[in-house]
Each structure stands twice: as structure tokens, then as C-alpha cells.
Amino acid sequence: MSDPLIQVDRIDKSYTALVPVLRQVSLKVYPGEFVALMGPSGSGKSTFMNVLGCLDTADGGAYHLGGEDTTRLTKDRAAELRNRMIGFVFQGFNLLQRRSALDNVALPMICGGLPRSVWAPRARDLLDQVGLKGRYGSRPNQLSGGQQQRVAIARALAMEPPLILADEPTGNLDSTSSADIMRIISGLNSIGGITIVLVTHEPDIAAHAKRLVKFKDGRIVYDGPVQQGLAA
């Protein structure tokens, strides 16, 4: 078996001294896996996602992303890791409101220092792939929720990251759009071979994944195949 893409060893995290949010959490995710994280609110799953995304650091323990120790990263290196290794898909889409779909998809490539001659065709290409051909110039407020989330997925794919972190990607969508989005995300994993970690509280969304990790009170209480986990 290859080296894990994500290797978390006994990390702790607390925002106040009294209430620990993560207690001694360990997890390994191998390239090509599709993992769903579930758990009640306050169980620590969102904080865990922030640590995985190098948006936050753990108090103790170790987190290796692609073999690199992230515990003592400089802010610049953390930014570079997010740019190269991770694509984010958020519940609230988090698109730049006054910018076109194309600009939004281009953002990680512009941040990564790619010239326009590279990012412009690639951004169009990505929008075509998520089914938004011809909507390059549309602004977020001219797009439906489902379409906005597709733009966000195209943005997440811009730097061809090995890992996509999706935090409740269907939380703001109706069931039809949710199905569309989950089909795209599943395809990224099954066809594109991209590793996906997805946070959700809906069992039918989690069912798209292959592996389920359940959080409760800052600990992992289940880690196994998704069918048994959902049945339990």
C-alpha cells in the first residue's frame, strides 16, 4: 500500500482550557479514498476539517499532509500547501460576489502566480467540465445555488490538487441540486482519482462515500465501511 496522503497522529485542540474540541484524534487517509465525516454539532468535525485544510493548527500531536509535517509551518508555506494540495468546497459557496465565474475559478491560479495565458483557458475548461459552458461572465448573484456550487468545485480543481475538502457542500441546496453536486464530487473520486474528505450530517449524502468516520465529543467513535456505519 502507498504512503497515506493524510496522516493524523493523536492531535488535540481546544479553544478554551476547559472544553477540549479534539482529543487524541488519529486518522490515516490514503490516496484515492472517499471519506465522509459525520457527527452532531460540537462533535469536533469542523475543527478537524480546518486542521486538515491547514486553516488551523492543532495544539498537540502531528499532522502530515503528503508526507510534510504541518505542525510548524510558516504562514507562507501553509498558504502554498492550501494552494497546491487542497481544493475547498464550502457550504456557503464562498465565491467573490462582484466577480465573474471565470475570475472566481481563476483565483487560485492567479494566487499561484500563473500567467493569464494559462489560467484563462484552463478556467473556461473547468467551467465546461462542471456543466457551466457559456456562463463564464456570470456573477454569483446571477447563478442558482447549484450553479454557484459548481463554480466553487471548478475553483477547487483549478490547481489540480490531490485532495478535496468539502464542508457540507449540499447544505444550502435543494435535493435536485444536491444530487447533481454529489454526482460531480463522486465522479472526481471514481474517475479523477482525487481523494475526498466530506463533512455532512445527512446519511444519504454520506452514502456516496466509501468510508465513514463518526465524531462524538472530540473523538472518533466509528471508522469503517459506510454501509455498516450508517446502519449502526
Binding site: 485544510g53 486553516l55 504562514k75 507562507d76 498558504a79 502554498e80 500547501l81 492550501r82 494552494n83 497546491r84 475547498f88 464562498n94 465565491l95 467573490l96 460576489q97 483565483l107 487560485p108 494566487c111 499561484g112 475553483r155 490547481m159
Partner: peptide, 16 residues
């Protein structure tokens, strides 16, 4: 603030 958050999430450095 939110836009800055998005920019940071996609890997813009503080200096930029």
C-alpha cells in the same frame, strides 16, 4: 472580510 478569507483559503500569501 469574507473575501479575504476566501483568498487566504485558496492560498494567497499574507504579503500579497
Amino acid at each position: 472580510t469574507r473575501e479575504i478569507g476566501v483568498r487566504k483559503a485558496v492560498g494567497t500569501r499574507e504579503r500579497d
